[in-house]
């Protein structure tokens, strides 16, 4: 499981936790997050996320 960080605002997407409130189940890998998903804090797309931690 990995953690991804939005390069613009620093929002973290944790694969283990997912984002159940947005319909992304815990354990959803980053590549399986829909391509049209937007960062909830700054509205950027998946392309502006960098992998931050490999856990």
């Amino acid at each position: 499981m990995k953690v991804w960080e939005c390069v613009i605002c620093g929002f973290l997407y944790d694969e283990a936790a997912g984002m159940p409130a947005e319909g992304i189940a815990p354990g959803t890998r980053w590549e399986d997050v829909p391509e049209n998903w937007l960062c909830p804090d700054c509205a950027t797309g998946k392309h502006d996320f960098d992998m931050r931690v490999v856990a």
Partner: peptide, 19 residues
Amino acid sequence: DRADEAPILADRSSGAYRR
């Protein structure tokens, strides 16, 4: 603190700078 101020899409470099 990322909770302060609200970035826009043009702020890639300032986001990297703050980190």
